[in-house]
Write a protein that binds this DNA or RNA. Structure first.
Lengths: 210, 210
DNA sequence: TGTCGTTTGTCAGTAGCTGTCACTAGTCTG
DNA sequence: CAGACTAGTGACAGCTACTGACAAACGACA
């Protein structure tokens, strides 16, 4: 067996500890609730000290957003990959759809997809998490706006269109996410369906008479 | 002087304590920074115990969002007041503008307008506050969506247009707020100007070719 | 003036998070 | 392969936001 490419024992041990904290944390959060789960409980469940938990995750919340981070960064990558002839809003739409299609392949090795989908519900029903989630969203939006601006060759500091496009698209996606997580059908199919319906409602919503 | 309509000494004392905590808190936050100001410091500056602080404000953050709450509820009231012939998005636009016009009259007796404007900057440069601010925003959005739905006689649970309209409008307003608070000109006039420019950019941003 | 109810301060305690220090167990070097 | 180095860890102490319990202080009102 090749040991040269494989990380050392120390590294593997670290990886295992992180994964354990992540999975046990998410499991405890989604079953018991975020607020009702203490850091000490997660640490104890994985049999490490509280201090060690904080060496792997800067905060309790980081457990929740670790997988989210992966998915979101993939979304941004996908945006940068879209063909040049696509209109900005269409770029974002296609990227969202494409990400939901790949979701299984991209995270399954870390956590079960079903657990990840339940995380959205956890976020939207936990005020403290929702707040952080929304802040993270607009941080991504800033990055996306810059990418779209570069794509279209405009300056985001003087031309409001990139940020406005991303902001309004994000606003609609937030509504979609909220509706999806509140509804009973927490599946990728349901999310795709809702996304289509909401994005198609943009023009009608802007129209003069309803 | 009429003492019958005037609240008693106890009530006035309470009012004074609350106002003092609010103003001193905002002053300390905007000068020293939010994280670097402790609740104990605010309490001490007003010469009450820490426990008393928490009897007036449920949390440190509530100092920051007390005036915001007033302004935002006035915004929602304004929306409900708009003439029936105005299109939904136009309703929100007019309400925003109208609120910025009245901002002086509505809060000046509580805190100086200038201090309130600086609060937006504080919020947008303090991650913890920004997170809460965004969550509060989407909570208002839900209320506004219901008002607009009722106005137009549609069911928000089946027709996506009310929430989509509010969500995308909110998304654009967030971009506006962010840009404004990051820029050098923290005035009502600058905010009005930016709002107009961003809202006018919605249609161009959605267009196929930039 | 004295009683009653509200407001307040004090004290103790919890949860999230950080700094410090010493110990142990991988890892690297000669 | 032995000894030095270093990263990961646990134990402990401390800070800040926040809460509950109880008693003292104070305004309201007869």
């Amino acid at each position: 067996m090749d040991t040269a490419t494989r990380p050392g024992l120390r590294e593997r041990k670290k990886q295992r500890t992180r994964d354990a904290l992540l999975r046990r944390g998410l499991e405890l959060f989604t079953t018991r609730g975020y607020e009702r789960t203490t850091v000490d409980e997660i640490a104890e469940a994985v049999d490490v000290s509280q201090r060690t938990f904080f060496r792997y995750f800067a905060g309790k919340e980081d457990i929740v957003f670790f997988v989210q981070e992966m998915v979101e960064s993939q979304y941004v990558t996908e945006i940068a990959r879209r063909p040049a002839e696509e209109a900005p809003v269409e770029v974002m739409r296609q990227a969202v759809m494409s990400c939901w299609d790949r979701i299984g392949a991209s995270i399954e090795q870390l956590v079960p997809v079903e657990l990840h989908l339940r995380t959205y519900q956890l976020i939207w029903e936990t005020p403290a998490l929702l707040a952080i989630h929304l802040r993270r969203s607009i941080e991504w939006e800033e990055k996306i706006a810059r990418i779209l601006a570069a794509r279209e060759g405009v300056d985001p500091e003087t031309d409001p269109r990139p940020r406005v496009a991303v902001g309004l698209f994000g606003g609609v996606m937030r509504v979609t996410e909220r509706t999806w997580s509140a509804g009973g059908d927490l599946t990728v199919a349901a999310m795709r369906d809702l996304t289509t319906r909401h994005l198609d409602a943009i023009a009608p919503a802007l129209a003069r008479g309803w």
